[in-house]
Simulated scan of single mutants.
Amino acid sequence: MAYWSWGNPRAGHVVVCVHGLSRQGRDFDVVAQAMVQRAGDAVRVVCPDVVGRGRSDWLRDPQGYAVPTYVGDMLAMLGQLHQEAPVTDLSWLGTSMGGLVGLGVAGTPGLPLPAPVRRLVLNDVGPTIQWQAIQRIGEYLGKTGRFETVQQAADAMWQISTSFGPHTPEQWLALSGPMVKPHPEGGLTLHYDPAIAVPLRALTKEAAEQGQAAVWALYDAVTARTLLLRGAHSDLLSRDTALEMTGRGPRATLIEFMGVGHAPTLVAPDQVDATATFLLAP
């Protein structure tokens, strides 16, 4: 598993940033740089490419593309980081799937963490996920395509990503560059293993609903201070679920961003400020 590292590699405060289902660790470039600018040598920001994505290897068995696998990978990564330099203060920022991985890490007692998760940011995700959003994502997931240029790929990705909210052409191109890699037959293709779609396609509405109780149990076990970010027009995290999350478990603080659906990209200044301020708080 590859990861991107920002800031002081010896800093005791480590912020782990984990991306969404079909994304990769460079999604956090802007917010990572903002945290380093604010905290200087006091922070290290680590942004993994979850297995099957970005620079990380692909799995032989697609059924391994699941949250328990990712939690195990994160524990291994944290163990390695702790060997390199002691991790004394651990924070977590997870967008969509990365938030579910964060719940697995922060909400499972007895895991061999180098330090407890003290601050948890869940970006547009909760224990109850709207089925229509799963269906929408399933319509495009696994179709990695072939493109002549990064701009062509960026334009194609924008067609399925307008819910991310307003972006300048420059911002969207910066987000899109790391999303492609060379295609074996020339041109470019999306960065991820198409087989990450296999478990999602096998998921039924009944199975998804049955899994919600387990995720709520993880959420209720979280002891970290928790910030919940939500796109005001999100089709994945309903407002009812978000409000329920403010009243149980770690009683998350909720911030909603107008004009945004699923999911805020943490590029806009207000999104960056809210996230960085929370994650760097004493």
Rank of each mutant, 00 (worst) to 15 (best):
P166Y: 01
M179R: 11
T189F: 00
A174N: 07
E185H: 07
Q171A: 07
H183C: 08
W172A: 11
S176V: 06
W172M: 02
P184A: 10
W172P: 06
S176Y: 03
G187C: 04
P199Y: 02
P182F: 03
P199C: 05
T189N: 12
V180P: 01
T168G: 10
P166V: 04
H183R: 11
T168H: 10
P199M: 02
E185W: 07
A195G: 04
P178H: 07
I196D: 14
G177I: 14
D193G: 04
V198K: 12
A197Y: 06
G165L: 06
G186T: 11
A174M: 05
R201H: 15
A197I: 07
P166L: 00
P166E: 14
M179K: 07
G177D: 03
V198L: 13
S176N: 05
S176H: 00
E185F: 02
T168C: 10
F164S: 15
E185S: 11
R201I: 03
T189C: 15
K181E: 09
S176I: 00
P169L: 11
F164I: 11
H167W: 03
G177C: 08
P178Q: 08
D193R: 09
P199V: 05
H183Y: 03
I196A: 15
P199R: 10
V198Y: 09
A195L: 14
P194V: 10
T189L: 08
E185N: 12
L200I: 10
A197N: 09
V180H: 07
H167K: 14
H167D: 12
L173D: 01
A195W: 09
L173M: 13
G186F: 05
P194E: 13
P178V: 01
P194M: 13
P166C: 00
Y192M: 02
P184L: 06
Y192H: 14
E185G: 08
G186S: 12
P169H: 11
L175H: 01
P178C: 02
V180M: 05
P182N: 03
L200H: 09
E185V: 02
D193V: 02
P184Y: 07
T168E: 09
L188F: 06
K181I: 13
Q171F: 02
P182V: 05
A197V: 12
H191C: 06
A174K: 07
F164M: 13
T168V: 07
P199G: 04
L190I: 03
G165E: 11
G186N: 14
F164G: 14
L188Q: 01
Q171N: 10
E170T: 12
M179A: 13
H191W: 00
